[in-house]
Amino acid sequence: MATAHSRAAARLTMSPAVILLLGWMLIPLVMTLYFSFLRYNLLMPGTEEFIGTLNYQYFLTDPAFFSALGNTLALVGGVLVLTIAGGIGLALLLDQPFWGRGIVRLLVIAPFFVMPTVSALVWKNMLMNPVNGLFAAIAKGVGLQPFDFLAEAPLSSIILIVTWQWLPFATLILLTALQSLDRERLEAAEMDGAGALDRFIHIILPHLARAMTVVTLIQTIFLLSVFAEILVTTNGGPGTATTNITYLVYAQSLLQFDVGGGSAGGIVAVVLANIVAVFLMRMIGRNLDI
């Protein structure tokens, strides 16, 4: 029962949120777009001039861009595979009856609430450090050479840290989906002689497909923007071995003060994120019944 009066009220109550978000999105984005066509360096104020698409040409042909693109894909892909595989395993485990299930559940989701700078520094220093870290102590204890994780395998180490942070999210969502599975179907399949593996492949996995897609899309949005973990562990190095697109744009704009080039990079990042966002929005939109 919406009257003309309540329609007007609806517009009025919605407007602050809409105006704020519009301002937040539109104004800076237009500014970024504008800067991306300028020669604009903060160290040389007053020399700004229009240079067309030159910034894009430089950014997109820079070898650093390709390595950053590769690192971004490896980081996103690696974390997705590990969190979804691990999340399915953990969801199946936590779905079983056992003693202290509530407490184990709390232990498993805990990493999600640890701030990125803390988890990155704890992993870097207290676990992965080749001299004083716990992994090194364990390696020495069993007679192996300690491994210098962040020097020898920097990107894999960051993938490991980020996986630890996101595993709880994937687990919780997959567990929620798993618990909505019709138990009678599983029991019926078992009666018919389907083994555990058959039941997993033909009943459980298809049931989890939707949740896996949602985890993939939402995590991708966040993983494209991984920043703090890189900043406090490797600063994008050694060389550019752990520089992703987000870190590259940060370094170009706030470390080299190249506003024009950084802006072009920012726009490229927006385009990349939008490719993923379109799919995610469709999924959420399909589920929204207004």
Binding site: T246, S253, G262, A269, V270, L280
Partner: peptide, 10 residues
Amino acid sequence: MLPPVGVLIP
């Protein structure tokens, strides 16, 4: 879903 680096500079 707007990546933060897209609006970092402005």
